[in-house]
Amino acid sequence: MLNRKDALTVTVLLSISFIVLPQSYGSQMQEHGVEAESTHGEGAGICPVMHKEASKEYSYAYKGKTYYFCCPACIGEFKKNPDKYISRIKEINLEAFQFGFSPDKITVKKGDIVKLDATSRDVTHGLYIKEYGINVRLKKGETKKIEFVADKTGEFDILCSIYCGRKHHDMKAKLIVEE
């Protein structure tokens, strides 16, 4: 049997692991500056006019699609020239697999709103773009919507942030944001 000191030590260590770890899991997957939720989530994404967080209260349907805005004024602005704003929204289906991403290169223009519908083909992967503060878990069979404004120019690595097998370190794609 354990003596009292041993039992105390084990209890403290187990408490640390069971209290600290689950809390940290949550913070690990916190996204910064992006909308990220499952396809059935409630988020409205980014306002195509002001590039701020949109609200479901302010919406406008155009050519069979519903767009969400941050305020009524933006709806008015959008109505004046919808194609101007729609052309700046890039919707991309991104699939992660062992050991790569498809497509392996995403090219957008600075200021575009990038909407990624991300899935995993096989095991759990992580979609990580350091410069855009994106770190999203992709479970097999689940689709995550990730939305951000491409406001930094350059070439950025898209990495897998969750160990997924022996060639995990080779799993890369590129996000190219042109001027």
Binding site: S27, M29, Y128, N135, K167, H169
Partner: peptide, 16 residues
């Protein structure tokens, strides 16, 4: 590091 969301890429373990 992983608790803080830093990705572990296991680069050094690339040659099995």
């Amino acid at each position: 590091a992983s608790l803080f969301g830093i990705p572990l890429t296991w680069n050094i373990g690339s040659r099995i």
